[in-house]
Amino acid sequence: AELDSDGVGEFDRYWGGLPHPDDGGLEALLARGLGGTKLPPGTTGTSPMNTVIGVVATDAPVTKAQAERLAMAAHDGLARAVRPSHLPMDGDSFFALSTGGGGETGVGVPGEELALFATVAADCAERAVVHAVLAASSMYEVPSWTELME
C-alpha cells in the first residue's frame, strides 16, 4: 500500500474503527453480515451479484499472447482485492487490449517490459476494485461497504 506524506496508507482512512482479527475483528465482520458477501449462507448455484468484469488497456504494441498475459495479471490483482475469488460459480473476467498497433507484427514488447506491465496491471486491478467498493452506494437492499462499516 502506498503511503502519503504523513505516513498514512492509501486506504487507511476507510478502515478506522475496524478491529484487528486478533482483537475480535472476525466476529465484528460476521456481525455486520460480511461473512456471507461472496457466498451467502444457504445459496446454491450461481449468483449474478458476484461477478467482476474489467479491462486492461495499453498503448504499448503488445501481441495477442502478451495481452492475454496482462489479463491474467489483472486476475492476480482481483485475487488480492476479493476473497475468495475465482470460485467455480464466478464469472470473473478481465480482457486486455492495445491501441498501440504494431502488435500484429508478432514482435510485441520485450519480456522485461511485459513483466513490468503485468505487475502494474495487477496493482491497478487491485486498486480499481477497492476504489469501486469504497465508492459504491447501497442498492436494491444490498448494503454498501460504507453502510456496513457505519
Score class of each variant (00 low, 15 high):
93 S>L: 15
37 T>P: 00
144 S>D: 06
136 A>F: 10
78 L>Q: 06
57 A>P: 01
68 E>M: 02
40 P>Y: 03
29 L>D: 03
74 A>S: 09
102 G>Y: 04
69 R>V: 11
87 L>G: 12
29 L>K: 02
135 A>T: 12
89 M>A: 11
23 D>F: 02
24 G>K: 05
41 P>E: 10
9 G>Y: 11
97 L>C: 14
21 P>H: 05
134 L>K: 13
28 A>V: 00
116 L>S: 01
16 G>F: 12
18 L>Y: 07
42 G>R: 05
76 D>W: 02
135 A>G: 15
133 V>S: 11
146 T>W: 14
103 G>M: 06
37 T>K: 03
42 G>Y: 06
46 T>Y: 14
35 G>M: 00
146 T>E: 14
71 A>S: 13
128 A>Q: 12
113 E>A: 11
46 T>S: 14
52 V>I: 13
132 A>Y: 07
113 E>Q: 09
67 A>M: 00
133 V>Y: 13
109 V>E: 07
25 G>Q: 01
81 A>H: 09
10 E>G: 04
65 A>Q: 09
87 L>Y: 00
111 G>M: 01
143 P>Y: 03
66 Q>N: 00
78 L>V: 04
135 A>F: 06
28 A>Y: 04
5 S>I: 13
98 S>G: 08
95 F>K: 04
90 D>N: 14
43 T>M: 07
99 T>G: 10
22 D>M: 08
78 L>K: 02
143 P>M: 03
12 D>P: 13
62 V>Q: 01
54 G>I: 13
73 A>Q: 09
107 V>M: 04
128 A>F: 09
80 R>I: 03
132 A>S: 15
28 A>G: 01
33 G>C: 04
90 D>Y: 09
141 E>P: 00
22 D>W: 00
42 G>D: 07
129 V>D: 01
45 G>M: 11
94 F>I: 06
132 A>F: 10
20 H>G: 05
57 A>Y: 11
90 D>E: 06
133 V>R: 12
26 L>H: 00
112 E>Y: 06
123 D>E: 15
126 E>V: 08
116 L>N: 00
35 G>D: 01
41 P>H: 07
8 V>N: 14
101 G>W: 04
44 T>G: 14
109 V>S: 02
73 A>V: 07
61 P>C: 02
92 D>F: 10
148 L>G: 15
58 T>Y: 08
6 D>I: 06
16 G>D: 12
132 A>Q: 14
88 P>F: 09
29 L>Q: 05
55 V>A: 08
140 Y>K: 15
139 M>V: 13
142 V>S: 05
20 H>V: 08
3 L>P: 15
5 S>Y: 06
92 D>G: 10
50 N>L: 04
82 V>G: 02
39 L>H: 03
43 T>Q: 08
146 T>Y: 10
84 P>R: 08
148 L>R: 15
144 S>V: 11
79 A>I: 03
92 D>Y: 03
123 D>Q: 13
20 H>I: 02
60 A>P: 00
